[in-house]
């Protein structure tokens, strides 16, 4: 009657339980957390003229795809996958136990899910330009008719990002919620990680580290706010607007957004390289 109720289990997840849990914590900080910090720092520069330069620098990295896959997508998939399992193994009770810690515990899981949804949309659209939201898909347009481009597509990072975000109130909302969720999730994750790893032992230490995490939250949140504000208030030039219009036109005709290197097509002409993996969005009225 007093034997342990927990039966020994030998599934992979159970055998490496502790390691996986700690890797879950670790991946949240490094690389994901560090990436998010740099990412938001870069975005903040949308408020300044240096943004394009930063974007160009990133795109100039060697083995970018390799870095992305192993440095970002796999860690994110790992962190998110385990996180989802953990999230549904709990019983939330903020109704009766209204403590700050309990709210943060619940919010950590809610923001994790929100951030995950946001990241999927964000990457699918701005990075891979999958038209999953139809005409409201925030896309990364290339400059078509920039003087001096000789007909080549040139990157217009600031303008097209801003216009993408401006494309719909829903997109703005998605970005506001998504970015702030990610920022909270990161800052609060840093706070709990310090306990998990055994760095902050006492309540005083946890409070002190909490102030640091609040500072990190505020810093990243203000970067985000600056970037969002810059995007939302960005005034596109006529040339940029024309580029955007042209991109949309191609999309309406072909169902895909043009890629870098695509030749400009005359209206009504089918592009040559349509990636078959793209899924057609529902037909929209031209």
């Amino acid at each position: 009657m007093t034997q342990s109720a927990v039966a020994p289990s030998s599934s992979f997840l159970d055998r490496h339980h502790f390691l996986l849990r700690r890797l879950h914590s670790l991946t949240g900080i490094m690389p994901i957390g560090v990436f998010v910090m740099f990412h938001l720092f870069t975005n903040m520069q949308m408020a300044f003229s240096t943004f394009q330069h930063e974007v160009d620098w990133i795109h100039s990295m060697p083995a970018l795809l390799f870095l992305e896959v192993f440095g970002l997508w796999l860690p994110i998939a790992f962190h998110a996958g385990l996180g989802l399992i953990y999230t549904f193994n709990a019983k939330y009770n903020t109704r009766h136990y209204r403590y700050g810690g309990n709210w943060r515990y619940t919010l950590q899981r809610v923001t994790g899910i929100l951030a995950l949804i946001f990241i999927l949309v964000h990457v699918a659209t701005l990075r891979w330009r999958w038209p999953i939201l139809g005409e409201h898909t925030p896309f990364f347009a290339w400059g078509w008719a920039v003087p001096g481009s000789g007909g080549e597509l040139v990157p217009l990072a600031t303008a097209t990002t801003a216009l993408a975000i401006q494309s719909s109130l829903l997109v703005i909302l998605l970005y506001v919620v998504g970015v702030f969720s990610a920022v909270f999730h990161l800052a609060n994750g840093l706070w709990t990680a310090a306990i998990t790893w055994g760095l902050t032992l006492t309540q005083q230490a946890q409070r002190r580290w909490g102030y640091v995490c609040i500072a990190i939250f505020l810093g990243l949140a203000s970067f985000s706010a600056m970037a969002l504000y810059a995007s939302v208030t960005y005034q596109a030039s006529e040339v940029e607007k024309a580029s955007l219009a042209k991109t949309l036109e191609v999309y309406r005709q072909t169902g895909v957004y043009p890629h870098k290197g695509d030749k400009p097509h005359p209206p009504g002409h089918e592009p040559e390289a349509v990636e078959t993996r793209l899924i057609m969005p529902p037909a929209t009225d031209p």
Binding site: Y86, T106, I195
Partner: peptide, 28 residues
């Protein structure tokens, strides 16, 4: 490793057992 640090434990403990210190120590 499964502790999610909601810290309700220490708030409701009728004997003020320093549970969160214990959790952090166990983590360390």
């Amino acid at each position: 490793a499964d502790c999610g640090n909601a810290q309700n434990c220490v708030k409701v403990c009728p004997k003020d057992v320093p549970l969160t210190i214990a959790i952090a120590k166990a983590g360390r």
